[in-house]
C-alpha cells in the first residue's frame, strides 16, 4: 500500500510497536512456561531428588523413563487427595452458587441499608485466605465459640472435635470455603441479575408472568454466560484449594483431609521425592490443558453455531 517503500504504513508501524509492547508479556510467559516445563518433564523421568547430592541436570544418571508415571496410578494417597479435592469442589461450588444466587435475588431492587449490607457481605472474600483459615481454626477449636454457640442453641454441652476428626474437619473446611467465597458468587450473580434488561422483565409482567416465570424464562436464560463464568472461576479456584486447608488442618488428621495441593506440598517438603512431584505436576498440567482446550472448542463451536443461525 505504501507509496514510498522507505516509510512504513500506519498498520506496519502499529504491528511493529505491538510486537514491542507484547514482548515483556511474551518473555515472562516463556520464562515461566518453557524452562520449568522442560525441567519438570526431564526430572519427572528420573529418580532425581534434592538429597541425591548432584544438581538437577544430572538427573539423566538415574533415568527411569516412566516409572514415576506408572507409580502415579498406583498411589492411593494421590487418588485419595484427588477424590477429596473433587468432593470439596462438588459440595462447596454448588452451595456457594445457590447461596450467592439467593442473596443476589434479595439485592436486585432497592431497599434501606442496601449499600451498607452489600459492603459487609463482600468482606469475607477480601480477607487474606490464610487469615480466613486462621479465623476458622480458632472458631472450630473444641473449646471455641462454635461449640459454645451450639451448646447454647441445643442446651447440651457440645464439645465436637472439629479439626481432629476426619468428617468434622471436612465439614469445617467446607464451611470456611463457603464463608469466604459465597460473596464472590453473590457479587457475580448479582451483576448478572442486574444485567437482565428491565424492559423485558416489565414486558413479561405486562403479559401476565409471575415472579417465578420471569425468573425461569427471562432472567436465568439471560444469565447463562454469567453463571458459567462464576462456576468455572470458582471450580478452578476450589481445585487449587490450599491456604485455608493448610492453615486449618495441614491435611490432617493424618492424611484425612489432604487435597491435591496439600498432598503435593507434603511430598515436596517432607518426602522430598521431587521427581515424583514433577510427574504429578506435569500430569496435572496436561489434564488441565486438555480440559481447557475442550472448553474452548465447545465455546467456539457454540459461537459458530450461533453465527450460522444468524446468517443462515
Amino acid at each position: 500500500m505504501a507509496s514510498n517503500p522507505q516509510t512504513l504504513t500506519l498498520a506496519q508501524q502499529g504491528a511493529k510497536l505491538g510486537r514491542w509492547m507484547t514482548l515483556p508479556t511474551q518473555l515472562l510467559l516463556v520464562f515461566i512456561f518453557a524452562f520449568p516445563g522442560l525441567m519438570i518433564i526431564y526430572v519427572s523421568l528420573s529418580w532425581w531428588g534434592p538429597l541425591e547430592g548432584v544438581p538437577w541436570y544430572y538427573a539423566y544418571e538415574s533415568l527411569n523413563w516412566f516409572e514415576n508415571y506408572i507409580y502415579l496410578f498406583e498411589d492411593e494417597r494421590l487418588w485419595g487427595s484427588i477424590w477429596r479435592t473433587l468432593l470439596i469442589m462438588l459440595v462447596v461450588v454448588p452451595v456457594e452458587f445457590f447461596l450467592g444466587l439467593g442473596l443476589a435475588i434479595l439485592f436486585v431492587d432497592n431497599f434501606t441499608g442496601k449499600r451498607v449490607f452489600y459492603s459487609i457481605l463482600l468482606m469475607p472474600m477480601m480477607i487474606v485466605p490464610a487469615v480466613a483459615g486462621y479465623m476458622f481454626y480458632i472458631l472450630f477449636q473444641s473449646n471455641g465459640p462454635v461449640n459454645q454457640l451450639l451448646s447454647l442453641i441445643t442446651g447440651f454441652e457440645i464439645d465436637i472435635l472439629w479439626l481432629s476428626e476426619t468428617d468434622n474437619a471436612f465439614v469445617a473446611i467446607m464451611i470456611a470455603d463457603i464463608w469466604q467465597w459465597t460473596p464472590l458468587m453473590f457479587l457475580i450473580l448479582l451483576a448478572g441479575l442486574l444485567g437482565v434488561p428491565e424492559d423485558q422483565l416489565k414486558a413479561a409482567t405486562l403479559l401476565g408472568a409471575n415472579w417465578g416465570q420471569k425468573f425461569l424464562r427471562i432472567a436465568l436464560p439471560k444469565m447463562r454466560i454469567v453463571m458459567i463464568i462464576a462456576l468455572v472461576i470458582r471450580a478452578v479456584e476450589a481445585f487449587k484449594l490450599f491456604d485455608v486447608m493448610y492453615v486449618m488442618t495441614k491435611g490432617g488428621p493424618g492424611v484425612a483431609t489432604e487435597t491435591i495441593s496439600v498432598y503435593v506440598y507434603k511430598v515436596t517438603f517432607m518426602e522430598l521425592e521431587w521427581s515424583y512431584v514433577s510427574a504429578i505436576g506435569f500430569a496435572i498440567l496436561m489434564f488441565l490443558t486438555a480440559l481447557g482446550a475442550i472448553g474452548i472448542i465447545i465455546l467456539s463451536n457454540a459461537q459458530k453455531k450461533r453465527l450460522a443461525n444468524v446468517v443462515d
Binding site: G18, R19, T22, Q26, F33, I260, G281
Partner: peptide, 30 residues
C-alpha cells in the same frame, strides 16, 4: 499491543492459562 495491533493472537489465552494451573503443580521447577 493485543487490543490495538492484532499481534499475539494466542497471547490472551496463554496468559489466562497462568491462572488455570495450581501453583503447587509447577512449584518444584520454579
Amino acid at each position: 499491543g493485543v487490543s490495538r495491533f492484532q499481534v499475539g493472537n494466542n497471547l490472551p489465552l496463554s496468559v489466562l492459562q497462568l491462572r488455570l494451573f495450581p501453583p503447587m503443580a509447577v512449584m518444584i521447577p520454579v
